[in-house]
C-alpha cells in the first residue's frame, strides 16, 4: 500500500492524534504542541518529547498516527478547557483541536491554521500576528485581546462561530475578528485599529476606541456618550469585507454598503468608528 505525498519522509508519513489522558495535571501548558515540532515523528518518538521541564508528552497524552492526515497536521483530543496556550507562536501547518482549548489559544500565532471544534478560554489570539484561527464553539473573554506581555491581536484572522465573552478585541492593533454569535460587554475597548465584526454586542462597546472599526448589525446598548452620530452613508469597503468573509466561508448576514456611522471614542482621539450595517 502506498500513501500519497509521504515518500520523502520515509516511515514518518502521517499526522498525529494526541488524546489527553484523564490523569494529566489539571493546568497544562500546551505551548509546545505544534505541528512543526512534532512533524515527522513516530507516535513513540512524539511521546518522548518534553512537554514541560521534567514532563514527557506521553505522560499526559496517548499518541496515535493519523494516516489520513499529512504530517504537518496535528489533532488534539482535549476534552475540557485544560490546555492553555495551544498553538502558541505556531508559524505553519494545521492544528486541529477536538474538544475545547484553554486560555491563550493561538497566542502570538505567526502562520498556519488552528481549528477548534469546541470552544476556547480567554485571550484567544492574544498577540496573533498572522494565520487563521477558527473556533466552532464559544470563546471566552478578551478575544484577540492584550494578554500580559503581549499586545492585542496584530494581524491575521480570528473567526468564532459561537459567542465571545467580554472585551473582545481589547487593544487590538490589526487584523480581523468575526464573531457570528455576538460579543459581550466592552467589545472593542481601547482598540488601536483593526476590524471586529459581530451581529451584536453587549453594553459600552468601543470605550477608549482609538482607531479601528466595529461592524455590527444592531446598535449596542449603553453606547458611550463619547460617540457622535455621523448618520447613514455608503461604505464600499463593507462590500469588500463581505467578499472576504464569504471567501473565508464564514457565515454572517450579508454586509450592505449602507451603514450608520458612529464616531469615537472622542476621549481617545475620536478616530474610531462603530458601523451599524443597514443603518
Amino acid at each position: 500500500m502506498a500513501l500519497p505525498s509521504s515518500q520523502s519522509r520515509g516511515s514518518s508519513v502521517s499526522g498525529l492524534i494526541l488524546t489527553l489522558k484523564p490523569q494529566a495535571p489539571e493546568a497544562l501548558d500546551g505551548a509546545g504542541l505544534l505541528p512543526a515540532s512534532l512533524a515527522g515523528l513516530s507516535p513513540a518518538e512524539a511521546a518522548r518529547r518534553p512537554l514541560a521541564p521534567g514532563i514527557e508528552l506521553g505522560e499526559c497524552f496517548t499518541v496515535q498516527a493519523d494516516p489520513a492526515a499529512p504530517d504537518h497536521r496535528l489533532t488534539l483530543r482535549t476534552g475540557a478547557r485544560r490546555l492553555a496556550r495551544l498553538g502558541c507562536a505556531m508559524d505553519g501547518g494545521t492544528l486541529r483541536v477536538v474538544g475545547d482549548a484553554g486560555d491563550l489559544l493561538g497566542q502570538d500565532l505567526r502562520g498556519g491554521e488552528i481549528v477548534v471544534e469546541g470552544g476556547c478560554g480567554a485571550y484567544a489570539g492574544a498577540g496573533q500576528r498572522a494565520g487563521l484561527i477558527r473556533v466552532r464553539g464559544d470563546a471566552g473573554d478578551f478575544l484577540g485581546g492584550a494578554a500580559d506581555g503581549y499586545e492585542g491581536m496584530r494581524g491575521g484572522v480570528l473567526l468564532v462561530q459561537g459567542r465571545a465573552g467580554a472585551r473582545a478585541g481589547w487593544r487590538m492593533r490589526r487584523g480581523l475578528i468575526a464573531v457570528a454569535g455576538g460579543c459581550g460587554d466592552w467589545c472593542g475597548a481601547e482598540m488601536l485599529a483593526g476590524t471586529l465584526v459581530a451581529p451584536r454586542c453587549g453594553a459600552r462597546a468601543g470605550l477608549g476606541l482609538r482607531r479601528g472599526s466595529l461592524v455590527l448589525w444592531e446598535c449596542p446598548p449603553e453606547l458611550p456618550a463619547t460617540f457622535n452620530d455621523a448618520g447613514v452613508a455608503e461604505f464600499v469597503w463593507l462590500a469588500r469585507l463581505d467578499r472576504w468573509l464569504a471567501a473565508l466561508e464564514f457565515r454572517l448576514p450579508p454586509l450592505t454598503q449602507r451603514a450608520r456611522r458612529l464616531v469615537g471614542d472622542q476621549g481617545a482621539g475620536g478616530k474610531g468608528e462603530i458601523l451599524i450595517v443597514g443603518g
Binding site: R204, L207, G208, A225, T226, N228, Q266, G267, A268
Partner: peptide
C-alpha cells in the same frame, strides 16, 4: 467611571459631543 473620564478627556481636547 471609565466613560466619565473619557468624556472629560474629550472636552479637555476640545472635541465636540452630540450628547
Amino acid at each position: 467611571l471609565a466613560e466619565a473620564v473619557q468624556l472629560l478627556r474629550a472636552r479637555l481636547a476640545g472635541r465636540r459631543l452630540d450628547a
